[in-house]
Nucleic acid binder design. Structure first.
Length: 881
RNA sequence: GGGCGCAUAGCUCAGCGGUAGAGCGCUGCUCUUACAAAGCAGAUGUCACAGGUUCAAAUCCUGUUGUGCCCACCA
């Protein structure tokens, strides 16, 4: 990285460009080349050997199949702002990019492609298919990486990682082996969530529940005296029933407990068992038990040693010999109900019944609970540690109330089903021997035997979240002891959406603490909300409200999109965004552009020391005082992840104070010339320099373009973050406030009297008794007031804040309108005064209110009294009609 | 069924114990020599409802209504 002192070769030095700057900012022209320059110069590359303290963020790896949506743009903007600021603050700042192989999602994508060629993955075979997926990745994957460049993401491309990379795969195998040896990974037959379309098991959190309309049918089981009625929404599973359960204390069925009854449509009899799980109040109080196809029933089966009968294959097709064999589960449902009805076994006709049904989060297919042999992570001890790290404050969740959700899950976590019946992913490193041996193979070990000898490797792959759980350290080289790992682990902040607390955050916590000797992978978890449209509606790909951020970036620039998102980023809250708002941000960028243009045209400079306060005008001291206040504010907001507030503070400081007041007030100074003008040029340069630095992490492109032009230096990316100099000048702030008050009041009068903004009016300013003498020229300029000539006759007189502005409108003013207006204001001020007086006359208030509140009320009273005096004087000064 | 959150200007949201704020939108006047993607001026709210605590409540407590999200093995 070069010293940030050389002059930019492009523009040949400071301040030479103003004439070349067009009147409008054109983001499309500068953003692309600027980004490439940053990358070429290696600004985003972090050095493990650096002496600087590290600051690390790993990117939540987007799916290789993904493209940039507003949610990414949002989170990336915040992460980019954090890492850019830290870099400016002198940290060795690393934002590590990469992608997730996204097992099911990617496999689905490629299978889809194959389907278009009329093939299935089985036509290719496993090896060829996996090769095909890699090829797909090469060609179509990672589209999002290019889009990240467009956004301006300052990531270290030299450290880009992919969860299926060799190194990361080794990390996966290493931790699998370690967990296996620690007996934290095991294999067991359980009821799992099965997706009959993806043909794989999925974990509990990959199931999305939604209320579906179903039908509850009541069926008579048994014969003769020994009958009871059960209700079900999944009639097809009755073929696999191996019991009926009732509550042990339920007298209605006491005589049946222990007996066997006939299962309709089959030649089987099944026992009636007593189990406290059954709620006697619900339905008939009798439950059909299908251990192989329902998690509850499986548990009952375990307790009563029932047989588990699988009646469907992996596609959800009935496998039981007989009339229903070969039917899809939903066809079978109707067919079975029809058959039961024929036998007169349907007691109550189908009743509409809304109940919660699980769907595959990938393809929305209704999940089929299924008994199956799978691999599991025993989460107990891992989750305990993950919970404790937050409980004891080593890791902070921001905003804090999100931690409840974290604890709820971590403290009640079920074992995690990690095996997937897919081909794309990390293959489970376990080998099965000819004599039933099971051997887990570590990363540097050979398989225990060859296929010829009867050994086979487990065909399942791991849940994609297994590898992303290792992300904060696998990306840094773990399990090797690399310099990167030593320098950049633990990372600092994890910034991500609250929707993946369970999927990803909790798992990184578990694995990080486990693999890295109890060192949590980050000290702060900053959770963001979801991006929504301008009416707060959820954006989804299927909705017409879905927006491609690339379109907005093309139209308004990346900075505009970034600023809009940052400005909407209230901690943990959802972020609404609409095109109008992006436009407004574009306008802001343009405003900064033009203000800088103005500054350059007027010779704003950074050369030489900032003059000492005593050599500066009140206007200059005021803006410097405000500037430093804002620096401190912005720092505080950054440290609290208050992006909306810091963006807003900068927006208002820049636009309202610097551009609308300071720049306008300076115009007079510049025109007058002399040492005062020179000082102001230096101050304006300073104010813009610092403001651009402060804005840079959020709107990097426009600030970089302007700053390099202003300063002639190489880049703002590697410039220093501003520090609060501590300079404050309360007197100057008060003085300028008074100027603003006078100006605003006279403008109001002019506007109310229907004077055109540009119309010059002769005026006499009486500033005796105020500090405003120095500002007379500026005020006259802002207010379009001419010197009073010989003929001057005051037709209106406006006393305000101790000053009096007498105007010659050379004609009658609208006295009535003005009187009406002033009377209204007067009434308001008097009411205010009365209220303040009432408070100050209240002993209870005086006795209990804190001093600063009482002081505030006193000030309020004084202000009201001053207003009354001012307005009364103005009324008195009105010419008689 | 449990948990959490939210109800403030036309819209989207800040504020969370001491006189109601922002952006966009709206009204009027302006091409005032950086910017019309602009400038200036202006209008706009019984802070969901009902109780309570307090000298003081949009802000704290209780309840009601509406709304959103998360969790759960609702046959």
């Amino acid at each position: 990285m070069t010293e940030n002192t050389q002059q930019s070769p492009r523009n040949g030095g400071p301040n030479s460009i103003p004439a070349q700057l067009p009147t409008q900012y054109a983001p499309a022209e500068v953003e692309g080349p600027l980004y490439e320059r940053w990358v070429e110069r290696g600004y985003f590359e972090a050095e493990a050997t650096s002496e600087k303290p590290p600051y690390t963020i790993v990117i939540p790896p987007p799916n290789v199949t993904g493209s940039l949506h507003l949610g990414h743009a949002f989170q990336h903007t915040l992460m980019d702002a954090l890492t850019r600021r830290k870099r400016m603050q002198g940290y060795e700042s690393l934002w590590l990019p990469g992608m997730d192989h996204a097992g099911i999602a990617t496999q689905n994508k490629v299978e889809q492609q194959l389907a278009e060629e009329g093939k299935s993955r089985h036509d290719l075979g496993r090896e060829e298919f996996v090769e095909r997926v890699w090829k797909w990745k090469q060609e179509y994957g990672g589209k999002i990486l290019g889009q990240m460049r467009r956004l301006g993401d300052g990531v270290d491309w030299s450290r880009e990682r992919f969860t299926m990379d060799e190194g990361l795969s080794k990390a996966v195998q290493t931790i699998f082996k370690r967990l296996y040896d620690d007996e934290l990974i095991y294999r067991a037959e359980r009821i799992i969530n099965w997706c009959p379309r993806c043909l794989t098991a999925i974990s509990d959190i990959e199931v999305e529940y939604q209320d579906d309309d179903g039908e509850l049918v009541s069926i008579t089981y048994g014969e003769g005296e020994d009958t009871l009625v059960v209700a079900t929404t999944r009639a097809e599973t009755m073929l696999g029933d191996t019991a009926v359960a009732v509550h042990p204390d339920d007298e209605r069925y006491a005589h049946l407990i222990g007996k066997r009854i006939k299962l309709p449509l089959t030649d089987r009899t099944i026992p009636v068992v007593a189990d406290t799980h059954v709620d006697p109040e619900f339905g008939t109080g009798a439950v059909k038990v299908t251990p192989a196809h329902d998690p509850n029933d499986f548990a009952i089966g375990q307790r009563h040693d029932l047989e588990s009968m699988t009646v469907m294959d992996e596609r959800g097709v009935i496998t039981v010999h007989g009339p229903f064999e070969g039917l899809d589960r939903f066809e079978a449902r109707s067919a079975i109900v029809a058959a039961l009805r024929e036998q007169g076994r349907i007691v109550a006709e189908k009743r509409p019944y809304v109940h919660s049904v699980g769907h595959c989060s990938r393809c929305k297919t209704t999940v089929e609970p299924r008994l199956s042999m799978q691999w599991w992570v025993k989460v107990g001890p891992l989750a305990q540690a993950a919970g404790d790290a937050v409980r004891d404050g080593r890791v902070k969740i921001h905003p804090e109330d999100m931690s409840k959700r974290y604890f709820d899950w971590v403290d009640n976590m079920h074992d995690w089903c990690i095996s997937r019946q897919l081909w794309w992913g990390h293959r489970i490193p376990v080998w099965y021997g000819p004599d039933g041996e099971i051997v887990c193979v570590g990363p540097d070990e050979e398989p225990p035997g060859t296929e010829a000898e009867g050994w086979t490797q487990e065909s399942d792959v791991l849940d994609t979240w297994f590898s992303s759980g290792l992300w904060p350290f696998s990306t840094l080289g773990w399990p090797e002891k690399t310099p990167d790992l030593a320098k950049f682990y633990p990372t600092d902040v994890l910034l991500t959406g609250h929707d993946i607390i369970f999927f990803w955050v909790a798992r990184m916590m578990m694995f990080g603490l486990y693999a890295m000797d109890g060192r949590a992978p980050f000290h702060t978890i900053a959770l963001t909300g979801l991006v929504r449209d301008e009416h707060g509606k959820k954006m989804s790909k299927s909705n017409p409200n879905s927006v491609d951020p690339l379109d907005w970036m093309d139209a308004y620039g990346a900075d505009a999109v970034r600023f809009t998102l940052a400005r909407g980023a209230n901690p943990g809250a959802d972020v609404p965004i609409g095109e109008d708002w992006v436009q407004a941000s574009r306008n802001f960028a343009n405003k900064i552009w033009n203000a800088t243009r103005f500054a350059l045209m007027n010779g704003a400079t950074l050369e030489g020391e900032l003059p000492p306060a005593e050599e500066l005008s009140a206007t200059d001291r005021w803006i410097l005082s405000r500037l430093n206040t804002v620096v401190a504010q912005v720092d505080a907001y950054y440290d609290d992840y208050q992006f909306a507030k810091l963006s807003d503070a900068l927006y208002h400081f820049a636009w309202d104070e610097v551009f609308d007041w300071y720049v306008e007030l300076s115009k007079t100074t510049f025109m007058a010339g002399g040492p005062a003008a020179d000082a102001s040029r230096r101050v304006l340069g300073e104010v813009l320099d610092v403001t651009l630095r402060l804005l840079h992490p959020i709107v990097p492109f426009v600030t970089e373009t302007l700053w390099t032009t202003l300063t002639g230096r190489e880049s703002l990316v590697i410039a220093e973050w501003p520090a609060d100099s501590g300079f404050r000048d309360a007197a100057a702030e008060r003085e300028i406030e008074t100027v603003q008050q006078v100006v605003t009041e006279v403008r109001r009068f002019r506007s109310d009297q229907g004077l055109q903004p540009g119309q010059k009016v002769p005026a006499r300013l009486d500033l005796a008794g105020t500090q405003l003498a120095a500002h007379e020229a500026a005020m006259r300029s802002l207010l379009r007031l001419q010197p009073a000539g010989e003929e001057f006759t005051a037709t209106a007189s406006l006393p305000v804040a101790g000053a009096t502005v007498a105007l010659d409108l050379s004609g009658a003013i609208d006295v009535e309108a003005e009187r009406k207006r002033l009377s209204k204001d007067l009434a308001a001020a008097e009411k205010e005064k009365a209220q303040a007086n009432a408070k100050l006359g209240n002993e209870a208030f005086l006795g209990k209110a804190p001093e600063h509140v009482v002081a505030k009320i006193r000030t309020r009273l004084e202000t009201a009294e001053a207003d009354i005096e001012r307005i009364s004087a103005q009324l008195a000064a009105l010419p008689k009609a």
